[in-house]
Simulated assay, not measured.
Amino acid sequence: MKLIGIDIGKNKHFFCIMDQQTGEIVSLPVSFSNDKEGFDFLLQKIKSYQKESVLIGMEDTGHYHFALLKYLLDLQYTVALINPKTTDFNRKMQGGITKNDKLDTINICDVLDTPERKKQYRISKVNSFDLYEQKQLTRHHHNLKEQLNVYGNRLQKCIDIVFPEFNSLFKSKYGTVYMNLLKTFGSAEAIVDTDIRTIRKCFDINGRGNRIALTPEQLKQCAKSSIGISSTAEIIQIKHLVNQIELINKQIAEIDKKIEEFSLKTNSPILSIPGISHFSGTSILAELGDISNYKKPSQIIKFAGVAPLHYESSQFTAQHTSITKKGSKYLRKTLYQIILPVIRYNPVFKAYYQKKISQGKGHRCAQGHCVRKLLRIIYHLLSTNQKFDPVLLR
């Protein structure tokens, strides 16, 4: 078997070739450009070996390796992706104090040259690119939601200054009338100085849904007695923030529509679990990748970073520890977002949650137990392509 280690860079990559049986470096580290000419140069160097006898390894970092990975997979080469922390740890374990691109290629070959039982890499397949777009979309959704929270908090701060009574007039925030008023006026003083007919225009909305109980007259009366202060800077911020929030909501709706299309096409068995939506299901599948890369449920629990941290030293064993929080933060975030509806809509999970609470576990700890139970079920469903059946959990 020939091991080919590739160190990825933005403009150029390095590679070397090692004979696994002898440990001899067959081809010393050499660079090639990150373009078609460079890829063809690499191919010329390795095409003399049979594809079945070649294992190519590269670090799974950033995005600079995507084009090369797709190029090699299209040619039906076997490619192993390695966590950069693994290569860094391997270098330090060997006492290495020098790090450069050439030495990294050899280090990657050393990582590839590990027993099957202890392999520290995962094999990438062509179909993994089907999940790439889904992963980018679901992560973009998460990022937009975080931006929405930031803008929402800033908006509330501005409202508290210019019209602190405004939120108490509405049962829920960010409705159509709510946003129209902020976008049009921005402060209590502006509402007071406006005639009632102009205010009524903000209340005129088309489409379905219940109309709010608040009237333009009540709004104006509340604005007259408001303790808010007039601030040009805050009013400008309010109008800008409202526009940004509305734009982000439109972007999220566009993303969710595409995610649903992917989900319907995939038709994964995990969608049969009550509480898992098209978005959360797609996010879980995209973050986990090919389920065949995991041999047992504990591996995906570890990958999600929800495994309980075990700390033991001499005669001391920690009784209360947090989860490891290693691995995919997006997967972990999705799991904790959906675990409450999963508990609510599934009697088995609800009973399991209550059992942990009765054992003296806290709410968050009990949630963690349910998350790990959910991952074990997801692993089984994906491995067997079986629909969820709550009866089998009893």
Rank of each mutant, 00 (worst) to 15 (best):
K85Y: 14
S314A: 15
I229T: 06
Y379H: 14
H240Q: 14
P390M: 03
K387R: 15
T61Q: 08
G305K: 02
N100Q: 06
K12M: 03
F166I: 03
L288P: 11
Y353H: 09
Q134V: 04
P269L: 00
D104Q: 06
R197Q: 13
Q94H: 11
I357Q: 04
T138P: 00
S313A: 08
G95M: 02
N153E: 08
K224T: 11
C222G: 02
P84G: 10
L264E: 08
A223K: 01
R372H: 07
I238D: 04
L392S: 15
L144F: 12
F279I: 10
N100Y: 06
Y77C: 07
P297F: 01
I191D: 09
K10F: 08
S231R: 07
D290T: 02
E146S: 10
G368D: 06
G95Y: 01
C158P: 02
T282H: 05
I17M: 06
L247E: 02
T317G: 09
K387P: 00
V26N: 08
L72R: 07
E165S: 10
H140A: 11
Y336D: 02
P347G: 03
N180F: 01
I339T: 10
K295H: 14
K325L: 15
T114L: 13
A223Y: 06
I259P: 01
I248K: 00
L392H: 13
E234D: 09
V177Q: 14
Y311R: 15
S313N: 13
K326H: 12
M58F: 04
